[in-house]
């Protein structure tokens, strides 16, 4: 099956006082119809900027997509006119954002905001769109949906607001849903409900999902494939089972190490990766993870590894074989 969405060599820079921040460095990924992929990495590694760049939603200036293409259904989103990409946003490719508190307009009613995509993309009247919005709100589990159309965002709890955001994103039944850490700002119990909700809606509506998270545990039950990002690079990509069973990048191993697991000794302390994620002001000629890597060899300091295929559906950007500690 052909790819629904195919991103190649995406590169995004931000101009800052210190210089150009290399936020996304040659990221490539693809998405088939109805497929769910995960993008995982510590905060600041470039996950949001990657997806926002494809929809041209990064603030410009200071941001700029400097290379790459983002082919959606045969057309490059990065080369479209403003009017063309406007028809993709919210109708073909929708986003759910991390913070349900700040992502709604505080002075407009929920009904108005949820109905808006239908008005602009499907040419519906306000009244029609509101009726549909009420159905959609009911679908995502808002009690008394019809009565709540005239309420404002501050009258909803965080979890309810995230449900509303999902309704707003899916109201035009898009082909692709980009969920940018949709549960990070929520309580754990609410997180689980939201994940269940999105799973259910995926089964009903059949959209493809790009699920961004810094929590490998969340993505395990959701995605088929996972990409791990570090310093604006994708450093490992594999099917979920493979990635969890045989992580090959020391960073992925570190991330998995910091994950609490049910089947393990409860006394084991959670490990976390020492050090901070890098802010890249240039393309490094060494592995960006080397400063934090306990496997780092001389080679790692001399050349930045590219993604290499090391098995079926498994690529990794690392010079070292973590099972032996030697160069692969």
């Amino acid at each position: 099956m052909a790819d629904l969405f195919n991103v190649q060599g995406l590169e995004t820079r931000f101009r800052t006082r210190e210089g150009y921040v290399h936020a996304v460095n040659g990221v490539s990924f693809h998405l088939k119809e109805g497929e769910t992929v995960g993008i995982v990495g510590e905060s600041g590694c470039g996950k949001s900027v990657t997806v926002m760049s494809t929809l041209r939603l990064i603030p410009t200036p200071p941001g700029k997509v400097t290379a790459g293409q983002a082919i959606y259904q045969g057309k490059d989103l990065l080369k479209m006119s403003d009017e063309e990409i406007r028809h993709v946003r919210g109708s073909q490719i929708s986003m759910v954002f991390q913070d349900p508190m700040t992502s709604f307009n505080p002075v407009l009613t929920i009904g108005r905001q949820v109905a808006e995509p239908l008005e602009i993309h499907n040419g519906m009247s306000r009244a029609q769109a509101l009726e549909r919005a009420a159905e959609m709100l009911k679908m995502v589990g808002i009690p008394n949906a019809k009565d709540r159309l005239n309420d404002y965002p501050h009258q909803f709890s965080g979890g309810m607001r995230q449900r509303v955001m999902i309704a707003m994103a899916l109201i035009c039944t898009p082909q692709v849903l980009i969920a940018d850490e949709p549960t990070t700002a929520l309580d754990v119990t609410i997180q689980a409900q939201i994940i269940e909700l999105i799973k259910r809606l995926r089964d009903e509506l059949g959209m493809a999902i790009i699920w961004i998270t810094h929590d490998l545990g969340i993505v395990a039950g959701l995605a088929k494939r996972v990409m791990v990002m570090y310093g604006g690079y994708i450093i490992e990509e594999a099917l979920v089972k493979e990635l969890y069973g045989h992580p090959q990048h020391p960073y992925t191993i570190g991330l998995l190490g910091s994950l609490p697991r049910m089947d393990e000794d409860a006394h084991r302390r959670l490990t976390s990766i020492d050090g901070l994620p890098p802010v890249l002001l240039e393309n490094p000629n060494y592995c960006p993870f080397a400063p934090r890597c306990k496997f780092a060899l001389d080679h790692c300091w001399n050349e930045n590894p590219q993604l290499r295929t090391i098995g079926p559906d498994h690529t990794v950007a690392c010079w070292v074989d973590p099972t032996t500690g030697k160069e692969r």
């Binding site: 406007r86 919210g90 002075v107 407009l108 602009i120």
Partner: peptide
């Protein structure tokens, strides 16, 4: 215009003019 909800409005596919008049001005 730097607020998150303005980004949301753009992500919904609003024309820039509507983003300003409908979402930014009142705030």
């Amino acid at each position: 215009v730097r607020e998150d909800y303005i980004r949301t409005a753009r992500a919904k596919g609003l024309r820039e003019r509507l983003v300003i008049t409908q979402h930014a001005l009142k705030n």
